[in-house]
């Protein structure tokens, strides 16, 4: 079993690397076939005052006059070695620019993710064990409520109440603990909605299962029943949703950073889009692809660990079909 898992993991990892490289190639091709030439636009900007000769020299030095496939190959091999080129606006290495803003975004995103998980688990537990008269039904409405409020509205409300009214944090110091905390809430609440929705549905399904009743007959209280029995089988589909939610986290951080005035990947993207700074944009898109692929890789690797019934066949995790399925197929075959 261990050998099977390791070869499964190796295959998944290799697939992930291929996907990342393809994503890079794809963004490169899309950028190069886009109408308009931002590079010459920048160079021809009268403010820069380059002569036609100088422009030709620069283009030749950067290898921009060579055929697209050759440019792609150079760019791809630079990407693999971690060299993302220079920003067109500031002439600084793109890696440095990203390294400056990444910690802030990572802090915000992971705090938001932690809050989202905590919210999902709390609400999930409440829907199963909170007595009816204490608002179990109200809890079930939370996910749709969370989904229907855009996160910038939550952000503005939090700033108004906790920043201005209660003075818990200063809006001009966006990297302080409390400012980060409330920004993470604004970002985490909509994310938690999707996770909670799936978690509640699966908790409902699992708590109806016979094994849950049998576990209760062994004297397990609600907390232990939840943690030991219901959570693990319920979390299988949740893992998939979490992997998708990470993507939302990236998108959402852009808006949240703007609302809270934070410097992060979001503000970097915003700046680069408005100035058509292609190397930075290409790097950020590739970074997003890497994060997305990695998160899904982790989800794939976790899945067989959560469910021992998953069989690892040819690099694919497959749930074995039940006897009933094949029997139904038998009766279907006879009538047709």
């Amino acid at each position: 079993m261990r050998g099977a898992y390791l070869s499964y993991a190796a295959k998944r990892f290799a697939q992930a690397v291929v996907v990342i490289l393809l994503a890079y190639v794809f963004t490169f091709v899309v950028v190069s076939i886009l109408p308009g030439d931002p590079i010459t636009n920048v160079l021809r900007d009268p403010q820069n005052g380059f002569s036609e000769d100088q422009i030709r020299q620069i283009i030749a030095a950067q290898g921009l006059d060579r055929p697209i496939p050759v440019q792609l190959w150079t760019s791809l091999s630079n990407f693999v070695t971690g060299d993302l080129g220079l920003s067109m606006r500031s002439s600084r290495p793109v890696t440095t620019l990203i390294a400056e803003v990444l910690p802030s975004t990572l802090t915000l995103a992971s705090a938001a993710f932690a809050i989202a998980l905590l919210l999902a688990l709390t609400i999930g537990y409440g829907t199963q064990f909170l007595p009816k008269r204490f608002g179990q039904g109200l809890l079930r409405g939370f996910p749709s409520l969370f989904l229907s409020v855009p996160n910038f509205v939550i952000g503005l409300a939090l700033i108004h109440i906790f920043g201005f009214q209660l003075g818990l944090f200063r809006v001009i110091a966006p990297d302080s603990f409390w400012a980060t905390f409330f920004a993470a809430i604004a970002l985490g609440v909509p994310i938690s909605a999707r996770i909670t929705e799936v978690l509640i549905a699966n908790l409902d399904k699992e708590s109806e299962q016979e094994y849950a009743a049998v576990a209760r007959s062994r004297g397990l209280g609600p907390a232990r029943l939840f943690a030991r029995h219901l959570l693990k089988p319920s979390s299988l589909p949740v893992v998939t949703v979490i992997a998708l939610a990470i993507g939302e986290l990236l998108g959402g951080s852009l808006i949240t950073e703007t609302v809270f005035g934070r410097t992060g990947i979001g503000s970097l993207v915003q700046r680069s889009v408005s100035t058509q700074d292609l190397p930075v944009l290409q790097a950020v898109v590739s970074l997003a692809a890497v994060v997305f692929v990695l998160v899904n890789l982790i989800a794939d690797l976790v899945y067989p660990l959560l469910d021992p019934r998953v069989k690892l066949i040819g690099g694919q995790g497959v749930r074995p079909t039940t006897a009933d399925d094949s029997a139904t197929a038998t009766s279907a075959a006879v009538t047709s």
Binding site: A213, V214, G219, G221, K232
Partner: peptide
């Protein structure tokens, strides 16, 4: 009632295949 569960009153269910948690 919980102290009686298991200790004083044991339960053998009908369908053994679904009566144990499949992922533990």
């Amino acid at each position: 009632f919980r102290p009686l569960r298991g200790r004083a009153i044991g339960f053998v269910p009908q369908d053994p295949a679904n009566s144990l948690n499949p992922v533990r």
